[in-house]
Design a protein around this nucleic acid. Structure first.
Lengths: 161, 161
DNA sequence: CAGTATCCTGTCCGATACTG
DNA sequence: CAGTATCGGACAGGATACTG
């Protein structure tokens, strides 16, 4: 890897980007949530070159977000299905989706999220699962149990996100 | 741009990636939330090459997430401050942070989010702002007011995310 | 249909040197 | 201190051809 490796980086954001930071990966995940599982479904939906699709699918499998599963013996056919880890990434997509709709839809929203039962539009918001309170400005970032001394020093001042 | 342009793509996720899809951009935003505003603060925190930092800062400014502001006349000095649009991106960082902590912290969490008042750990969760109900699997994606006919066709089947 | 194999280009990115 | 200028390498990504 040419980029500085963030393998031993403490920040979970940096670590996440290490796995899904590539451009196509997120769109592939999006399509996986949409229910696509097969190579050519992704290829057609994304308009991605086949070699790149192979690369990105392999990457997502190695990162443990997708699982390559044989669904037919002869001829051998594989499908790409989300793992728990991959499914758990959906909150990121939701917030990204919402942000895009808020700020990058000059001529109106072309796609919206809705409640599957009521059909009402959904407006994603992030809250604390324990208290139910919305996360607002000033969420503190502090060194955790596995922090190194240097890290503790860095997060000693009031660091917020 | 060498990549397929997603300028007229309807999906807000793709559009978002157009603006913040680059690897460093997110980390710069993260540091901006941390309170950094000046060139060399970013440079030192990220260990990024100065030319890249210039490019990414310029990109974020053009995308309207950061604003370059003169804070000193002679010699001219600029600071990079978050715009509303940039601040509004924080939910994405929160969910990314949480995902990274859940899945990429083998030796324990090195950094955690806490409530600035109580000091308790925070566990980000995405809910619908209107009903307060957690978003679960099966959030529907449907064509919105500005959708083209082709788009409507695509999202006619039950598409979820 | 589900990929693999090549080849090519753009550009992300790092390293370094330089400037007001 | 806050950048700009230049160079070079690695690789993401595109295009196309080919295979069981």
């Amino acid at each position: 890897m040419q980029r500085t490796s963030f393998d031993q980086m403490p920040c979970p954001v940096a670590r996440s980007l290490e796995e899904v930071g590539e451009w196509w990966s997120i769109l592939i995940l999006r399509d996986a949530y949409y229910g696509l599982t097969r190579f050519d479904q992704f290829a057609q939906s994304l308009g991605i070159a086949p070699n790149m699709l192979t690369r990105r699918l392999k990457g997502l499998c190695e990162a443990g977000l997708l699982e390559r599963r044989l669904y037919q013996e002869r001829p051998p056919r594989h499908e790409y299905v989300l793992t728990d880890k991959g499914r758990d990434f959906r909150p990121v997509l939701w917030t990204l989706f919402a942000w895009g709709n808020r700020h990058l839809a000059p001529e109106g929203e072309s796609v919206v999220l809705t409640d599957p039962e009521t059909g009402d539009a959904i407006e994603p918001m992030v809250v604390d699962a324990r208290t139910g309170r919305p996360l607002a400005k000033g969420v503190r970032v502090v060194a955790g149990p596995a922090a190194t001394p240097g890290l503790r020093r860095r997060f000693e001042p009031k660091t917020a996100i």
